[in-house]
């Protein structure tokens, strides 16, 4: 698929002491955007399931994972925490 260029002639300015800070802020905002997108997809699913009579909002709210499911989710959560918080650990001078 051909992609249209995202390059801006003339560039965009940076405001913080290091342009990397501007870049990190842009990344965080983009992540926030994707978080919002996912949340709206989940809400879309829940709304449609409710409207179609498959599940009610109440059933979703009352859901409690079984001990086995809870254990599996916990593993996944821990992995996510490590994946994220240990990113960049090789950067010289950064907090290990």
């Amino acid at each position: 698929m051909t992609q249209h260029s995202k390059t801006v002639r003339g560039g965009r300015p940076a405001f913080f002491d290091s342009p990397e800070t501007d870049r990190l802020l842009a990344m965080i905002v983009r992540l926030l955007s994707e978080q919002s997108v996912l949340a709206e997809r989940v809400k879309t699913l829940e709304t449609l399931l409710d409207q179609l009579g498959v599940l009610t909002a109440e059933q979703i709210e009352q859901f409690t994972p079984s001990p086995q499911v809870d254990e599996a989710w916990m593993q996944t959560r821990m992995q996510l925490i490590k994946d994220v918080l240990e990113s960049g650990a090789n950067i010289e001078g950064s907090t290990k």
């Binding site: 249209h4 995202k6 965009r12 300015p13 405001f15 501007d22 802020l25 955007s33």
Partner: peptide
């Protein structure tokens, strides 16, 4: 606060076009 406001505003401006360019690609 000015840096914060300005950097966010530029980022939002870039997102405006990026979302549209993606739609155009697809």
């Amino acid at each position: 606060l000015f840096k914060w406001y300005s950097s966010l505003r530029c980022t939002a401006q870039e997102l405006v076009w990026q979302s549209t360019l993606r739609a155009l690609d697809e």
